[in-house]
Design a protein around this nucleic acid. Structure first.
Lengths: 206, 206
DNA sequence: CGGAACTTTGATAACGTTCAACATTCGTGG
DNA sequence: CCACGAATGTTGAACGTTATCAAAGTTCCG
């Protein structure tokens, strides 16, 4: 089985010997569909890198409502990196498919960053981009109408829903009912054409 | 005039000589209240560190609605750090008071990170925490009612509004009217007591 | 001291959630 | 591979929260 270390842009600039070094400090992990990788409140001391599969990161508010924050797949690392001060996760990480991960303890990872500064550079860039994406999604969810949010999502993904409508609702912070209604409305208005339950063709105009 | 380099947790672990080195690559900048530091779309090639004053970072959606993302003050750096690939800012940065900044070109900053890995470590940690905060605020704004958002804000800040109601509305993604109404309602219900326009006393009970 | 920006209050409208009932799909075990 | 139960999706009706517009009041700042 191939190690995730080779899959990760994070370690792109390293040579084979350095990769092996990282391999030695990493532990392979496999989790099943719907299995929880960690819960909010769990001790955060491990960096996970996805070798295959898909992980959903979400938060849940005091009333039990869920917001789907990020969908991570091959090559992504789990974003919470309080590497200096030990703390806890405050999001929920769930596998949406069978998933293979490499895990590295923050302790070891910290040594690694000190030794290979170019890895840090990549990490800084990646975190920065995630912060941007988070803020843009925040803008979308809190200032656009549900219609606009759905239209925006469809345009960004060529009419393909990459998840269930339930999850999409959690991602666009609305309800499955609203998404369902809006999609049929879009079809009636001739803006889309349903091909399958998760794939629609976008028709020109507007 | 004291340099901001000494104010920044980012450079905490460095000695005087190293600080001087950074000083040499940094350019001091002063901007007036309401002046724009950068617009979305501007070339992003500079790291700014705040020596004094306050900067608001916000995004504006396609309909002109604003979301206030972050409020930065002494010691904070401006978060957008696409240091590896040159890109553009996609937020708006405005000074809310007279503000002093140090600016360092990404080029130089990148050298610095390679040379002093411990600075990278701090940066990674800081970006990670910002990402978390962004996601938590996103949860608040998109899953809680306006009442709950305002109550949450009051609790987090001991009843003190750190900005105008207009800005607070942009931060909580609502309108000044709603905030105004909710605050008088809270007072009628005996949940708060207005001391001044921006300071209220929180009274016990749920 | 005067004008601009911000704040408050009211009336109105609508967007989207909620609840409920039914339909469909999914996935697991027989 | 089919059958069954559970999860997901759809549609309808009703309600409530919150945005919007307007107009008057207040604060801020040059």
């Amino acid at each position: 089985m191939k190690s995730c270390v080779h899959l990760v842009p994070l370690f792109n600039h390293l040579n084979d010997q350095q990769m092996d070094e990282i391999l030695e400090m990493s532990i392979h992990k496999r989790i099943k569909k719907n299995e929880v990788l960690f819960n909010p409140g769990d001790r955060a001391d491990t960096l996970y890198i996805i070798a295959s599969g898909e992980i959903h990161l979400s938060t849940i508010n005091e009333n039990g409502k869920e917001l789907l924050l990020e969908i991570l797949s091959v090559g992504d690392f789990i974003g919470e990196l309080n590497i200096l001060s030990m703390s806890t996760y405050d999001v929920l990480a769930v596998a949406k498919t069978e998933t293979e991960l490499c895990s590295i303890k923050f302790e070891d990872f910290q040594q690694l960053l000190m030794k290979y500064p170019q890895v840090s550079l990549y990490l800084v860039q990646e975190l920065s981009q995630r912060l941007n994406r988070s803020q843009q999604q925040s803008l979308i969810n809190s200032t656009l109408s549900v219609q606009e949010r759905v239209k925006n999502y469809l345009n960004q993904h060529n009419g393909q829903l990459l998840m269930s409508k339930k999850d999409l609702a959690a991602y666009l912070s609305t309800t499955p009912e609203s998404i369902s209604r809006i999609l049929t409305q879009f079809e009636e208005e001739g803006y889309i054409e349903k091909i399958s339950s998760r794939q629609m063709r976008l028709l020109e105009e507007d």
